[in-house]
Each structure stands twice: as structure tokens, then as C-alpha cells.
Design a protein around this nucleic acid. Structure first.
Lengths: 357, 357
DNA sequence: TCCATCGATTTGAACGATCAAAACGGTTGG
DNA sequence: CCAACCGTTTTGATCGTTCAAATCGATGGA
């Protein structure tokens, strides 16, 4: 029993030809209504599902989107990717696509696997995360006309400190989705100001990382907007709880020490909380990412709308994959094409207020 | 330029037939060495990669493995899946397979998507996580002869309290990989005993969850082995930081209160740490899963070997997919077949000692 | 009346790989 | 001397779908 039902099975059952069944699914307007309902009934009754492999062979489209899964760095910020992935999977499947995972040790390794993924699996598109200065991946993909979106702005050479022009200097424009980190730290800063703090320091990462610089800028702008002076009140260090504590201690040792800290990550924030103020008592602290650590320890943190970000990524991709490609396969993702504003989406994060500040 | 290189391109370049190229890749022993090296050279030179869609259409095998990504429950334990996924992706790709994600709201929804995944994408196998009592998913898959492995033992009706026989009573045997939770909590308990504690309580989940009962059993066995009495020293509650704190408080209110807690999760453990002892001071606490929260807060916790578990899962699957299937496609995963001992792997977790206990 | 046009449907070919069977040259054995 | 057999290689068919072009019946204008 149970011969697999193909398009021919359905065709015979509905007494039409293969192609008519195909048209019902892919170009319904070509089929007479009467015929269409009959075919659809047969499809339903037989439980027919189009074979992806066969379809792919003919159309060259796999309906698969590739995403890299990273090796969960320090674990604290790792779960961000987890939630993003879940959102991607959900919205992609709603749009008729599936998510395929791959890993790579570094950017070079990642580019190397692109060849394999495209060559053997004919992937339709890529979603890149953790974009950074001089990212070679976007250039590679854009160069071969492979559709992709990045979750994270292309931190290009315009953002780098003057005088330096990194490798792969000026990345082309491409569709991206990102969360407005500056808006997040600004909101956190305003929250602390409203709570009565006047000396609010920022603990982040060394200059040069796009994400870190962006978050520092939000803090600085909010401080200035309140008529205060941010000079000397920020420190850059590598990410980690111990590093956060050390930075907080150093800042608390200043002549006129801060009473609150805006931090670029929950790891740093957790460390800062553990540094006690000169007069005693805990400083007020805000973190970033609203990770499990912040939730568990009651730390105020900036929450990224990850599900929405994922949805937007899929939206941008399907827009290219479903419409443009069908009309003009060659120029649709041509690297010369300038994407319109709607293809670059900046989402606003939300401050989750807890007991820490 | 850049006509895509197919098997025919390679054949012409190496001056042999299509089939010979195919044989070089799939059955090298049939090809004369001299010819083989020539063909391999052409493959290398042209950068040929076999088209998966075409191969799949003929062989019926997709080289894709499906894994469900869950909606990151409370966030604290969520990153466990994250690390497991990373391990899966890595080992699967080494074995020539790719990981495809899917989501589902519940078991029924999951079973419903199986049809879609199998029907349109011809997935080769599934990896199931979060197995539980009366799991309908394993029965469904086994019933249609779809290869799968579970990360988690089949907590069958033999494990349930006497008198109850849940729905889907006796799940069949199938390959699985799991971590020995009892061994983990036993190690944690012994660690606390060695530190001088005599009253060690356990905070876990209500009876009936396989995983929770297992972890409680490990604690109880270790207590008994030390000649102590576990009676009355354990509490079951739902997972969460607040719940953990409440449970710890209740236990500390006993006439002869515990001085240490073994907990079934890091969430519970973190809560327990926040409950102070009658005489003052923090109780000693161990958690479970070694999540980011434990790392960040310096909590002793039981660490699961997730990368190894993932590797074993892939190993079990490929064993079925690569060998058995080729020989006898029908009976290879027949539900009547009894898996040998090597198909059920129990890994031992590792206690990560930190300042909390 | 006849041909052009149109909507709806059908037919043949192709995508790129593997399977099954045939073909080939060379050796062996009766 | 021919048949059977071997190892190696080639040929034809096929998987299930979509594309491109052909077919068909009905309608309308010259």
C-alpha cells in the first residue's frame, strides 16, 4: 500500500493533466475555477505534497535559508542567538521556507562553506549575524549575487576612527535589520536620570567595535541632553563579569565618583553591581540584552525585539526571493542596485525595569 | 561565463561517461585506479559538487536531519538547547548531513509538521529533545519507519508511579542518548557531604517528570550511602527563581534545618541561594545544567556534556542511515527490530565546583 | 466562409543525478 | 575454437516537477 502520491497521481484522480495540477499550485489564474476546485479536492483527498527536490531541480530554488549557529561565546549573551533563531524558523516556515544551520570557526571558514552550501544544496539565501568592521562575508555574497540579509548594520569604514581604513574598506549597501543600540542606552540613561542620578558612567568595549561605539553614543547623547558632562565617565574593556567589576571599581575611585552605571552588556552589568560604592551600598546598574542572567538577578536591562527582527529579516528576503527573482532573475540582487530605504530596518529596543536601577 | 558544472561537464573533461564519474564518488572500488585519479583531478579542477536535489530525486535520501527548536522557555535553561544544536550542526556536517530547524507549539503540532517535512523535503531523520511521559511523537515516527534518535530517555510507563498507566503506555525501544542526571546530583551531594554538610536537602520538581525523578533519586541514593536519612528533606515545585527561594525557606523552617541544597536546575538553585539560613549566612547550593547564570553568579553546578551528546546522536543516526538502509531499506528501522545496547547511550555529567558550595 | 484570436488544457523536453542492464576487450576452460 | 566469465566502462531509463510550445474548441470580424 501507500504508493507515494505524485503530481501524476493527482492528475489522474482529477482527470486532468500534470501541468494543470502544477498550474493550480503555481499559477491558479490560468485554470478555470471549476477545474481548480476539482484539482484542489483531489490534492486534499490524496494528501499530495509537491516534492521539493523535483521542484528544485527544475526551478533552481530550494526554499532553504542558511543561518550560522555560533559556538555560544561566554554563554551569557549566547541565548540571544537562540531566540533569534526561533523567530527566524517560525516566520520562515510561515513564508514557506526552512532554516538550515551551518557552523564556521571564522569568517574565512564561513566563506569556504558558502561554496559547499550553494554548490550542493542550492540555498536560496543567507542570514548573517555578528557583522563587524571589514566583514568579508557580505562582499563575497554580494559579488556572486547571492541574496542575503544581515542582522546588524554594515559597520563600514565611515564609522571607523579617522585615519584608519580597514580591509574591504567600503562595503556595498545591502538589506539589513538591526536594533538601535544607542536608543537603548539612551533610554537606560534617561531612566537613571529620572531616578535622581547625576553622575552616570558608561562601561563598554574598546573603541572600534561598531556595536559598542553605538551604545556608548546613546549614553553620551542622553547625558549631554540633560546638560551634564560625560567626559571621563566611560571605560572600555573586554566583555565579562570580572572585567565589569574592575571597570566599575576604577570609575568609583574617581574624585567625583558615579552613582550609576549604564553597561553595554549584562555580563558587564552584573560585574558592576558587585562593586560597592565608597560610602557603601550598591550602585544602580543597567545591562543590555535582557538575558536570563538579568532576569534571574533582577537587573534592569535593554531588551532587543528579537522575534520582530527575525521576522523582518525573513520579510526582506522573501521580498527579493518571491517577487523580483521571478521577474528578472539576473538583476534582482545585482550588486549595482541601490536598495531603497525600506530594505534597511532599525528597530527600537525596550527598557525592562527591575530592581537594580 | 560560469556554466554550472554538472556531472556531464566533469565526464567530458575527464573523457569518461557520466556513470563513471558517479561511480568514482559513490562506488570507487568499481573504477580502475588510473581512471579514478583522472576523474578526481577533473572534479578538483572544475570545482564540481554533486547537486543534492538531483541525487535526492533518484535515491530518495536528502541528507537532511530535522531538529525542533523550542521557544526558549524561561531563558535560563534555554541555552542548553543552543549548545546542543551547535554540537549537532558540527558533527552532522562532518558526516555529510545538514540540520534543518522546525518549530511546533506542542506535540500534536509537531506530529502535524512531520507530514510536511517528510512529504515535501524527504527528511532522512529526526532528533527529538525534551522527551516525556506518554510521548506521542516517538510512536508516530516509529510507526512509519522514520529513523530518529531522542536526546533524553523514553520515560515510559515502567517509570511511572504504580497504578498509573499513561496514554501511549508502552513506548517501543529506540536509539537514544541521555545524560545520567542521577549521577550528577549524586556527585553534587557527595561534594557537599565532603564539605562537611550533614543535612542536605533536595529541591526539584513534582513527582511524575522523568528527568526530575531521576535527579531526586541520585540525591537520595548518595544521602543513603552516607548513612543519613533523606526523609522529609525534599520538596517539589515548578521551575523558577522565586519558586526555588520559597522552597528553600520552607525547608529552612524545619526543626532541624538543612545547611545545603542540591537543586534540579540553576533557576531553583539561584532562588535557594537567596534564602538565608536561620542563624544567618547563605546556605551551600548546587544547581544543574551549568548555565550562564551559574557561571556568572559563581554557583556550583552539574554540567552536561552537550557536545558529546550531540555527537552521539549523529553517530547513532548515521549508523542507521549510512549502512543499514543501503542494505535493506525496509527492515532497517522496522519497529519490530530490537536495538542493541550500543544504541542507548548514557553519558556522565561533570560537577563544576564554584564558590556556592 | 475562413482565418485570426483567445482562454484553457495538454504534450514533449529538460533539470542532474543514480540504477539497471548492456557492451566491451581480455582471459580462461572445456 | 567457442562459450563462459571477469573487470571495467557505457548506454538507456527514470525520479517528479516545471518550462515552452502545441493543441483544442469557441468566438468574432472581415
Amino acid at each position: 500500500m501507500a504508493e507515494k502520491t505524485t503530481i501524476t497521481t493527482v492528475a489522474q484522480h482529477a482527470r486532468v493533466s500534470r501541468q494543470t495540477v502544477s498550474n493550480v499550485l503555481n499559477a491558479p489564474h490560468l485554470v478555470r475555477v471549476e477545474t481548480r476546485v476539482r484539482v484542489l479536492a483531489s490534492i486534499e483527498e490524496l494528501g499530495y505534497r509537491a516534492n521539493q527536490a523535483a521542484r528544485q531541480m527544475r526551478t533552481g530554488r530550494s526554499r532553504l535559508i542558511a543561518v550560522r549557529i555560533e559556538p555560544a561565546r561566554d554563554g551569557i549573551n549566547g541565548s540571544v542567538l537562540d531566540r533569534f533563531l526561533h523567530g527566524l524558523t517560525e516566520t520562515a516556515s510561515a513564508a514557506g521556507y526552512r532554516i538550515v544551520l551551518y557552523t564556521a570557526a571564522d569568517d574565512e571558514g564561513e566563506v569556504a562553506t558558502y561554496g559547499d552550501l550553494l554548490g550542493s544544496y542550492d540555498l536560496d539565501a543567507f542570514v548573517l549575524t555578528s557583522t563587524h568592521h571589514g566583514d568579508i562575508r557580505t562582499a563575497w555574497l554580494a559579488g556572486r549575487g547571492v541574496p542575503f540579509v544581515t542582522f546588524g548594520r554594515p559597520w563600514g569604514s565611515t564609522e571607523t576612527p579617522a585615519g584608519r581604513s580597514g580591509p574591504g574598506a567600503s562595503p556595498r549597501h545591502h538589506p539589513w535589520v538591526d536594533v538601535d543600540g544607542a536608543a537603548g542606552t539612551a533610554a537606560a540613561t534617561r531612566h537613571l536620570l529620572a531616578a535622581g542620578h547625576h553622575r552616570i558612567a558608561f562601561i563598554g568595549w574598546p573603541e572600534g567595535s561598531g556595536v559598542g561605539d553605538d551604545r556608548r553614543a546613546g549614553w553620551r547623547a542622553a547625558i549631554r541632553a540633560a546638560g551634564l558632562d560625560p567626559v571621563g565617565l566611560h571605560l572600555g574593556t573586554s566583555d565579562g563579569v570580572a572585567e565589569g567589576e574592575r571597570a566599575a571599581r576604577d570609575l568609583l575611585a574617581l574624585p567625583d565618583p558615579p552613582t550609576a552605571f549604564v553597561c553595554a552588556s549584562d555580563s558587564l552589568g552584573l560585574g558592576a553591581r558587585q562593586a560597592s560604592k565608597p560610602g557603601g551600598g550598591q550602585p544602580a546598574v543597567t545591562g543590555f540584552d535582557d538575558t536570563a542572567v538579568a532576569q534571574a538577578t533582577g537587573m534592569t536591562s535593554v531588551s532587543q525585539p528579537l522575534a520582530e527582527a527575525a521576522g523582518r529579516c525573513v520579510q526582506l528576503l522573501t521580498r527579493v526571493l518571491d517577487s523580483d527573482r521571478a521577474i528578472d532573475s539576473d538583476r534582482a540582487f545585482d550588486s549595482d542596485r541601490v536598495p531603497d530605504a525600506a530594505e534597511q530596518i532599525l528597530l527600537t529596543p525596550r527598557l525592562v525595569v527591575r530592581s537594580s536601577g
